[in-house]
Design a binder for these strands. Structure first.
Length: 676
RNA sequence: UGGGGAUUAGUGUAACGGUAGCACGACUGACUCUGGAUCAGUUAGUCCUGGUUCGAAUCCAGGAUCCCCAGCCA
C-alpha cells in the first residue's frame, strides 16, 4: 500500500514538524535494522469489533498505514474492545480479513498470502484464526494496567467511586449551558474509594450500581470534563477475557492509554473526538503527576503521551455510513448481509467487485482535511473503473437477450441447436449440431496487449442486446433498425432485413438480418463504415448466468435528509419495497408516517437497488472462479459472485450455476443522450 | 443564550503575506471495431463586512452559516 503517497495533507505537516523538533525520538535497533535511527512515527487503526468495516474505515486505514509506511514507521492493528456487550469474535475475524485485504501490514503479521477473506460470515477453523491473529493487538490485554492506573488516580485523589445511578449522573451533569453540580460521593476519602473499587472489581455490586469517576470539574464548559465515568460495572462475558472482569473501562479512559502503552506517536481519530482530547490529555497528565523521567520517586516513570490529531471522516452520497444503521439494514433484512454488494462495507465492496487498489486510489483521491465534506459516489465508481479498465479482461455478455437470426448464414435453415452451456470447444472451424460455426479472434484487453486474444464462436442464431434494436429509431440511434447495417464486434457486418413481433404484446421476439462474408473480423474491404458496433453471443454456445444489477441503496444523495423522502417516494410510486426478502414489518411504507417514525432514513431506501436478469455470456467465462472480474463490453465491470457453483468437469451434463454482480457500469453517453 | 471545530468553482482538495492551482463532474471537439478508453479545449471559486499591508484565501476585528458535545457507547 505505497500507492497513496502522492497527496500531502495537514497531518503530514504536523508529522514533519514533530520530526524537525525531534519530538518522538528515533527507533532503536530493536525496532529493526531498517528503522534504527529514523524518527519515530507510530500509528494505529483501533476498531471496535462491533460491526463490519466500511469504506470510511478504509480512509482511516489508508491514512494511518500510509503515514507509517511513508515515514518508515510502524502501524498497529488494535481492537478497542472495551464493551463486551456489543462485541463479537465474528467482527474481529472480519475486520482482520478486511484490513489485510486492503493491504495494510502490521508488526508480527503472519507472513505469506492473506487467507481468503470469508465472503460471508463463516466460522474459521482454529488454525486459520490463530494465523490471522498474529501481531494483532487488543485493548483488553491492557485491562490490568488500565485498572491499576485508575487505582493510582484514586490514591492521588483524582478519582472516586460514585454511587449515583445513571439518571442521577445525567441530572447532576447539567446541560450545555448550565454547569453541573457535585454529587455527595465526590468527597469520599481515599481508603473508602479504594475498598469500594476493589469490591466493584470483585463483582460484589450489581451492574449500574456504581462507577469509578475522575474528579475533574463538574462546572467545566466541556461536558466531557465534568467528572467522567472511568469504569462501569458489567457482569458480561468478554470475547477475549471471558469472565475475568466485572468492571470495564470506558472508551475515554481506555483509548489514550492503549495508545500510550503501544508507544503510538500520532493518535489519529475523527472530528467528533476533538472534544475528548483535553480529557485524554488530562488522564495521561494525571497518571504522570508525581512520576519522573527516570522512574525515581513513589509513582515511578512517566508514561508516554501521544498526540491526538483529528480529521474529517468520510461521507459518501447515496449511502449510510454509521455502523448502527448498517447493522439495522442487516438485521432487518433490507440487505442480504454485511457483505451485500450494495453495502458500503469492505466485504460488500469486495463482493461487488471492488479491488483494494481502487479503494486505496479513492482514499488518496479524496484527501484528508478537517472539513466535514460529502464525497460524490461517482468518485468511488471512477476509481474502480480506472483500475479495472487497465486490468479486467473483456468479454461479451448479453444482459437482455433478443434473438438475431442471420438468414444467409451457411448451413441448414431451421436446424434445432441445443445449448450445452459449457465445456471444451475444439471445433474451431466446423459445425455445432448441424449449423456452421465460425470461431473468431477477439482481443482480451485493448488496454493491455499482453492479455492476448481468445476465440469466440459465431453461428446462425445469436443473441444481441434488446436495447440495441429499435423498430423506429429515434434521432442519433445508430444501432440496429430495419435497413441499417452495423458491425457485430470482431465478427461481421450485418444488415437488418426484418423482425417478428408477438402479436398480443407487441414485443419484438426476433430480428433477422443478412451478413456480409467479406467483412469477417469486422472490417469491410471496400472501406465501408458503420456507425456502431454491437456485442453478441452465439445462442448455441452461450453460458446462461444470473446477473445482479445494482444501483444506489438509497434514492437520495443524503439518506438522512428525510424531507426529500416524500418527494422521491411520489416519483418512485411504491417506495420502500426491496427486491430482496424482507419481513413485511421491516419494509418502509411508501413515504408513509409509519416508516418515518423510528428510522426515518429508511424511507429513502431505493426499492430498485437490485435488479436480477438472466443473461447470456460468451462461453469463455464458463469456468471463471469466484471473484473473477470481467468487463462485459459496452456494459460495465462484473464479478463472479460466491453464490456461483464451482466450475464443473467437462463431462458434467448440467450447466453450472453462474452468478455475476455488476460492480460498476461503463460510462454511457448514449444513456445521457436519451435523457435530452 | 456554554464549549469545541469548520467554511476556497457543482463536488472535493492545494496555495503557509507575493500570478488562486489540481482532481472529479459538466460542456465542446478529435480519435475509436466498446456511444468504452484516450487526447485536446471550455466552464466555474476565496462565506460576509471592515481593518493592517506596496500586496490578504492567508494576519486582525466583528458577523453569518454548518458540524460535534448533555451514554455507565465508541
Amino acid at each position: 500500500m505505497s500507492d497513496n503517497v502522492r497527496t500531502r495533507h495537514f497531518i503530514h505537516e504536523l508529522v514533519d514538524e514533530d520530526i524537525r523538533k525531534g519530538r518522538w525520538g528515533t527507533w532503536s535497533a530493536a525496532d529493526g535494522a531498517e528503522r534504527a535511527g529514523r524518527p519515530r512515527v507510530h500509528t494505529r487503526f483501533p476498531p471496535e469489533p462491533n460491526g463490519y468495516l466500511h469504506i470510511g474505515h478504509a480512509k482511516s486505514i489508508c491514512l494511518n498505514y500510509g503515514l507509517a509506511a511513508e515515514y518508515g514507521g510502524k502501524f498497529n492493528l488494535r481492537f478497542d474492545d472495551t464493551n463486551p456487550v456489543k462485541e463479537e469474535q465474528e467482527y474481529v475475524d472480519s475486520i482482520i480479513a478486511d484490513v489485510r485485504w486492503l493491504g495494510a501490514k502490521w508488526p508480527g503479521m503472519a507472513a505469506g498470502a492473506a487467507p481468503p477473506p470469508p465472503a460471508v460470515a463463516v466460522a474459521q477453523p482454529p488454525s486459520a484464526v490463530h494465523l490471522s491473529l498474529a501481531g494483532v493487538l487488543f485493548g483488553s490485554d491492557y485491562f490490568p494496567q488500565m485498572y491499576a492506573w485508575a487505582i493510582e488516580l484514586i490514591r492521588k485523589g483524582r478519582a472516586f467511586v460514585c454511587d449515583c445511578t445513571a439518571d442521577e449522573v445525567r441530572r447532576l451533569r447539567g446541560s450545555l449551558t448550565r454547569p453541573g453540580t457535585e454529587c455527595p460521593h465526590r468527597r469520599r476519602d481515599v481508603a473508602e474509594n479504594l475498598e469500594l473499587a476493589e469490591r466493584m472489581k470483585r463483582g460484589e455490586f450489581p451492574d449500574g450500581s456504581r462507577t469509578i469517576r475522575a474528579r475533574i470539574d463538574v462546572t467545566h464548559a466541556n461536558l466531557n470534563l465534568r467528572d467522567p465515568v472511568l469504569y462501569r460495572i458489567l457482569h458480561a462475558e468478554h470475547h477475549r477475557t471471558g469472565n475475568a472482569w466485572c468492571v470495564y473501562p470506558m472508551y475515554d479512559w481506555a483509548h489514550g492509554f492503549e495508545d500510550s502503552i503501544e508507544g503510538i506517536t500520532h493518535s489519529i481519530c475523527t472530528l467528533e473526538f476533538e472534544n475528548h482530547r483535553p480529557l485524554y490529555d488530562w488522564f495521561i497528565d494525571a497518571v504522570n503527576e508525581g512520576r519522573t523521567d527516570d522512574g525515581s520517586g513513589p509513582w515511578g516513570r512517566k508514561i508516554h503521551h501521544p498526540q491526538q490529531i483529528e480529521f474529517a471522516r468520510l461521507n459518501l452520497t447515496y449511502t449510510v455510513m454509521s455502523k448502527r444503521k448498517l447493522l439495522h439494514l442487516v438485521k432487518r433484512g433490507h440487505v442480504r448481509g454485511w457483505d451485500d454488494p450494495r453495502m458500503p462495507t469492505l466485504s460488500g465492496l469486495r463482493r461487488r467487485g471492488y479491488t483494494p487498489e481502487a479503494i486505496r486510489a479513492f482514499c488518496a483521491d479524496v484527501g484528508v482535511a478537517k472539513f466535514d465534506s460529502v464525497i460524490d459516489m461517482v468518485r468511488l465508481e471512477n476509481a474502480l473503473r480506472e483500475d479495472l479498465n487497465r486490468r479486467a479482461p473483456r468479454v461479451m455478455g448479453v444482459l437482455r437477450p433478443l434473438k438475431l437470426v442471420i438468414e444467409n448464414w451457411p448451413g441448414e435453415e431451421g436446424t434445432e441447436m441445443r445449448a450445452s452451456g459449457q465445456g471444451a470447444r475444439t471445433d474451431h472451424e466446423g459445425t455445432q449440431g448441424s449449423g456452421h460455426v465460425d470461431w473468431l479472434e477477439a482481443i482480451n484487453n485493448p488496454e493491455d496487449p499482453a492479455a492476448g486474444t481468445r476465440k469466440v464462436p459465431f453461428s446462425r442464431e445469436l443473441y444481441i442486446e434488446r436495447e440495441d434494436f429499435m423498430e423506429t429509431p429515434p434521432p442519433k440511434f445508430w444501432r440496429l433498425y430495419p435497413g441499417n447495417e452495423v458491425r457485430l464486434r470482431y465478427a461481421y457486418f450485418v444488415k437488418c432485413t426484418g423482425f417478428t413481433k408477438d402479436p398480443t404484446t407487441g414485443e419484438v421476439t426476433e430480428v433477422r438480418c443478412t451478413y456480409d462474408p467479406a467483412t469477417r473480423g469486422g472490417d469491410a474491404p471496400d472501406g465501408r463504415k458503420v456507425k456502431s458496433t454491437l456485442h453478441w453471443v452465439s445462442a448455441a454456445h452461450a453460458v446462461e448466468a444470473e446477473v445482479r444489477l445494482y444501483t444506489h441503496l438509497f434514492t437520495t444523495p443524503n439518506p438522512e435528509d428525510v424531507s426529500e423522502a416524500a418527494a422521491e417516494a411520489d416519483q418512485i410510486g411504491d417506495a420502500g419495497r426491496l427486491a430482496v426478502d424482507a419481513s413485511s414489518a421491516a419494509r418502509p411504507a411508501a413515504g408513509g408516517p409509519g416508516a418515518a417514525s423510528d428510522e426515518p432514513w429508511l424511507a429513502n431506501l431505493n426499492p430498485n437497488s437490485l435488479e436480477i436478469v438472466r443473461a447470456m455470456i460468451e462461453p469463455s467465462v464458463a469456468d471463471a472462479a469466484s471473484g473473477a472480474k470481467f468487463q462485459f463490453e459496452r456494459h460495465g465491470y462484473f464479478c463472479v459472485d460466491p453464490d456461483s457453483e464451482e466450475p464443473r468437469s467437462h463431462e458434467a451434463t448440467k450447466p453450472r450455476r453462474l452468478v455475476f454482480n455488476r460492480a460498476v457500469s461503463l460510462r454511457d453517453s448514449w444513456a445521457k443522450e436519451k435523457l435530452r
